[in-house]
Amino acid sequence: MATMENFKCMMCGYEYQELVEEGEDKERSCPKCRSNSIRHLKNRPSGDNTDGKSKKVKQ
């Protein structure tokens, strides 16, 4: 299954989204500057300001 993931180029700062296939083995490079310094940003649901780890909500 493929999911849309967020990436950031650590060289030029460009942020973009790309479909990622499960278990894919792909060399990444920035669509803008071709740098390989591509940081995989953890997907965060909108409005969530946690670090991506689930938090228990008090009832």
């Binding site: 650590m10 740098s35 390989n36 310094s37």
Partner: peptide, 9 residues
């Protein structure tokens, strides 16, 4: 600043 670490092939 994480950008201070870079990766290149």
């Amino acid at each position: 600043r994480p950008e201070r670490l870079q990766l290149e092939w």
